[in-house]
Nucleic acid binder design. Sequence first.
DNA 1: TACACGTGGCT
DNA 2: TAGCCAAGTGT
Length: 346
Amino acid sequence: MRDMLISADLLAWYDVHARELPWRVGPKEDRLPDPYRVWLSEIMLQQTTVAAVKAYFAKFTETWPTVQDLAAAEDADVMAAWAGLGYYARARNLLKCARVVAGELNGAFPDNREGLQKLPGIGPYTSAAIASIAFGQRETVVDGNVERVMARLYAEETPLPTSKPLLRDYAEAQTPKNRAGDYAQAVMDLGATVCTPKSPACGICPIRSHCNAQSQGIERELPKKLPKAAKPVRRGIAYVVRREDGAVLLETRPEKGLLGGMLGWPGTDWAETEPVSEPPIDADWITLNEEVRHAFTHFHLRLTVHVAEVRQDARAFRGGFVDPSDFRANDLPTVMRKVHALSSSS
DNA sequence: TACACGTGGCT
DNA sequence: TAGCCAAGTGT
């Protein structure tokens, strides 16, 4: 039986190869990072790549340097700043969490997993990540990277998601008493840069000698996954209304559900059936030839775009007109930006 | 317990 | 091109 413990080799690798990231304190620095910045980065990094997060993290920490600043922000400003990053429930919960921490906890995040996980938007992964990275607690962090590394290390052929409890057991057995935060980040760095899903770079892997999948030559086949259901196609209509003065008709979407709390063009529901037109204002409508296509997590969307010019005194049934000086396409979620781009080019 | 929930980059 | 994939959480 080979020696399966990886933490020593992995930490030695991390000391040399740790990526420099804006929310990270270097492995050689003898201090812990600001919990606010750790929390903010971990929320942004949920199901989101480092490359996508960097600009948003810079914008947020510049605009709201402390949790008190963020707690005092206007909801619409935070949603606009988050626009484009996706999973907008994260932004709504981010504000809720900031207000609890600033209001009820005197600005201090809980220093342990149990306390952290009671806060909005913080689940099993994020509570362990903050507790270990920001507070030095020995907690086991399990994300997609860790699951992949453990599946290969132990040559676990049980498919995900069935294997989740097993992989967590493996991860807990590996977590060291000391430097748990560095170790957690080291496994995630390894998964992101070496033990990648498609073509793992086993030739430069610091824990290659421990890896059962590598010795069996099955690393590219792990972790196994159950097949996913095909994505249905949904259709709808988006209405772009321009007033004589250049104002555009927008509405804030309901708090719950898809794109909740975000600005968007009025439109029909999105369904697998052909949409029935329900224009938000009386006007002469023009249907654009090209349609907007967008892929969500669980369905594909095809939006037909209807545009109209209306008089200054026109009254809408829903939504509100936004002056050109107040309108920024970047405040919209991406699918709504696509609608805007198409209507502007036509 | 499944499913809802975004987006952009890569293959 | 279409599917896969990413530092998950809430319901």
